[in-house]
Design a binder for these strands. Sequence first.
DNA 1: CTTTAAACCTGCTGGC
DNA 2: TGCCAGCAGGTTTAAA
Length: 260
Amino acid sequence: MPEGPEIWRAAARIAGSLGSGPLTSVVVGLERLEPLEGALLGACVLAVRPRGKALLTSFSTGHTLYSHNQLYGVWRVARAGAALPPTTRALRLSLSTAQGTAALYSATDVELWPTDSVHEHPFLQRVGPDVLDPDVDLDAVTARLRTFPRRRSRLGALLLDQGFFCGVGNYLRAEILWTASLHPSRTLASLSDDERGALAAALLEVPRASLRFRSARGERRFTFAVFGRAGRPCPRCGEAVVRTTDGGRRLYLCVTCQPL
DNA sequence: CTTTAAACCTGCTGGC
DNA sequence: TGCCAGCAGGTTTAAA
């Protein structure tokens, strides 16, 4: 159940395990993907780039693999000679070089595109800036909050819309709103300058903190302030965290820190 | 334009 | 042990 940080981390692991050498093995687990074997065998991986929750793996053949983990997909990697951990999940695609293997399980949203036109993919065509992209800075986020057209949409809905910013999912939504002290029913139109600044900062800081904390081995994991913590004290004011539903998804908030 | 509901993909958990 | 219902850190589409 990955959001941006998990996908960014997967991208690094995949790139690290495959290296730049030619693919020595391509195994597919979906009939639809059979053409990938012939198309990619012997190809070199040029880059593994995340785009929000999508992953773009480009090859020397001029092809780019689009993959999306959806709710349940998972990438596993292993060094050459080492076995992938055993699993009951369905293997969808496995790529191997002399250096290692990267394998995608369960997710079915996998397509091979010409690199030239992969930006025309229906998902990629409509995504907004990636909150984990190092080139996206506070000024860019603040400007987008000022000019984004849907001024009267609830922030709860907006944050999950990948066309607004991509890479934000359900746990990040809750943590971002809490960090900015904003109620999910607030709208862009209603924000004061200070509130807009707080939201812009949280949009960048929270996903980056999640990526940072879980990436370092041995370091403590990113801990949620409110997500999944119904009834437990808000880390800021001590009031009990509340679980609600917002746009059909569960949402946690502190009604004291995030008043309407 | 905005919100809600349903559908779809798959995996896991808990109850019976 | 086996089956089913319900939920899920996602997205798209249709309908209200």
